[in-house]
Design a protein around this nucleic acid. Structure first.
Length: 472
RNA sequence: GCUCUCAUCGUCUAAUGGCUAGGACGUAUCCCUUUCACGGAUAAAAUUCGGGUUCGAUUCCCGAUGAGAGCACCA
């Protein structure tokens, strides 16, 4: 059996009715990885058939988000609103065949019907009332300008399909009821437009979120009525809130751009999102995009939903941050690429989880915060001794030439003193004097970044603080 | 309510019809260390429950329970 090897063609089909969210990004990533892994094509299709809710700004957000993630597409963006002629053609065909029909039921009627069924414990389903309308009755209704929609006649049979991730799945068409596929010939709706587009674009694999699982039988029925072939399906597990409900704003940021704004690196986010519902064969946690492409396999995708764990994202982001060079970090941080800034970046890189942490962690380099003299005292050492040590350190450092004011030189100079008088009583006050903070990099590192003049100025400030306290 | 789906440490997950069920995040303790962070080490922590098949089931089958999604003239 030599099955014809068909080209892999996948798509991401977001609708521009809100900011591009993490779930959409994960679906995009999995489609993209699958395409790259198989040397196929990745297509971007904008599902903007909902004229009321679709906004240009959201479409732009989809595009910039995908670009930020580095998920380039081979075709598109293709907008559904540019393809109305195509849908109309297929709609007419369905109408002619009798697979679709005009429905004149009012929303009120439908709602009453729905409530009635719910009350009886049935799944809500359209009665099929307008199925029976003759061509003459339809014409008469249209002449009266009665509002109408186009419904698809769902066959009352079972439909079975194979999901690459979930295996065999079966739905009963008898329970579905005739769905609305278009408001009119020029206004197609989701389930119908998807089927037409996937066929027209020769999509080989439909990889999408699990929330679409129940749409699949509907789409298969439409496909069959139109004589289209069936793509392969893979429904991805949902991304969940900590309470295991579908991820929402209630628990964490959902819009992708927020992650960029919050200081996450796209590489870290891609790595993290790839591991939501998927895992390579080995125990590796950090995979480059190339490795992801190489290792990615739909068969290994998890069936159960995955909770979005921000702590792990933060850890991953920190790992990626540490891999960047000072130059790359300066660029990512939008900081001037000067020697002084490089020094500061080197001292801060292992302390930040996100790019946005940088500011708070480095402010003290540029401006000494106001602090209480108590900060200078190590544990319960006498203030007099601390003052004496700082004076000694000031004296020693003052003898160093500006050019020799490096980490190595100042260490060589001060360490004997620290050993003699106790590290806590010498190094802590010095570090506190230089940073004005409880926590910071070490004193020698700070001095190196600050330079001789500023270092001595800050030590003097500390001495003044302690001395004035002594007099009082 | 109906339909569908799912079930391994708190979380993301690995594994096999067969050793003490492995890794990562997080947590705790220790080491490094003037502080913080990084790094290193150690520890606690899981196969939802009940049947069956089998010499043996976390794995296969059935049931229960629990969880989630869908049920629009949204996508």
């Amino acid at each position: 059996m030599t099955a014809k090897k068909t080209e892999v063609r996948v798509r991401i089909a977001p609708s521009p009715t809100g900011y591009f969210h993490v779930g959409g990004a994960r679906t995009a990533l999995f489609n993209w990885l699958f395409a790259k892994h198989h040397g196929g094509k990745f297509i971007l299709r904008i599902e903007d058939t909902d004229l009321e809710r679709s906004k240009k700004i959201f479409e732009e957000d989809i595009i910039t988000s995908l670009q930020w993630l580095g998920l380039d597409w081979d075709e598109g963006p293709i907008r559904q609103t540019d393809r109305l002629n195509i849908y109309e053609k297929h709609l007419r065909q369905l109408l002619e065949k009798g697979s679709a029909y005009y429905c004149f039921c009012t929303k009120e009627e439908l709602e009453a019907e729905r409530q009635g069924m719910l009350a009886q414990g049935f799944a809500p389903k359209y009665s099929g009332k307008c199925r029976k309308l003759t061509a003459d009755e339809v014409r008469a209704n249209q002449k009266k300008a009665l509002a109408s929609v186009i419904r698809f006649r769902i066959p009352e049979t079972r439909v079975d399909f194979t999901d690459i991730i979930r295996g065999n799945i079966s739905f009963d068409g008898a329970l579905i009821g005739d769905i609305v596929i278009a408001k009119d010939l020029r206004s197609p709706l989701y389930n119908f437009a998807v089927v037409v587009d996937d066929a027209e674009m020769a999509i080989s694999h439909v990889i999408r979120g699990e929330e679409h699982l129940a749409n699949t039988p509907r789409q298969i029925f439409i496909q069959e009525a139109l004589g289209f072939s069936r793509p392969k399906y893979a429904h991805l597990p949902l991304i969940l809130n900590p309470d295991r409900s579908k991820m929402s704003k209630r628990f964490s940021a959902t819009a992708l751009h927020e992650y960029k704004d919050h200081g996450y690196l796209s590489e870290a986010l891609v790595n993290f999102i790839a591991f939501l519902g998927w895992h390579p064969k080995d125990d590796k946690e950090i995979l480059s995009i190339e490795e992801l492409i190489k290792e990615f396999d739909l068969e290994r995708v998890q069936k159960a939903g995955a909770v979005f764990n921000v702590d792990k994202l933060d850890w991953l982001n920190a790992q990626y941050l540490k891999k960047l060079t000072a130059k790359e970090l300066a660029k990512a941080l939008a900081v001037a690429p000067t020697e002084d800034n490089f020094k500061i970046i080197e001292l801060t890189r292992e302390r930040m989880k996100k790019l946005t942490d940088f500011k708070a962690l480095t402010e003290f380099f540029y401006e000494l915060p106001d602090y209480d003299s108590k900060l200078l005292v190590w544990k319960s050492s006498p203030r007099r001794a601390i003052l004496e040590n700082l004076r000694e350190e000031e004296k020693l450092l003052g003898g160093l030439k500006s050019d020799d004011f490096t980490r190595a030189e100042s260490e060589k100079l001060l360490l004997p003193l620290a050993e003699a008088r106790g590290r806590g009583d010498t190094l802590w006050p010095l570090r506190a004097a230089l940073s004005g903070q409880e926590a910071s990099p070490g004193p020698f590192e700070i001095m190196d970044a600050l330079g001789k003049k500023e270092t001595l100025r800050r030590i003097q400030i500390a001495i003044d603080k302690l001395a004035s306290h002594e007099e009082n």
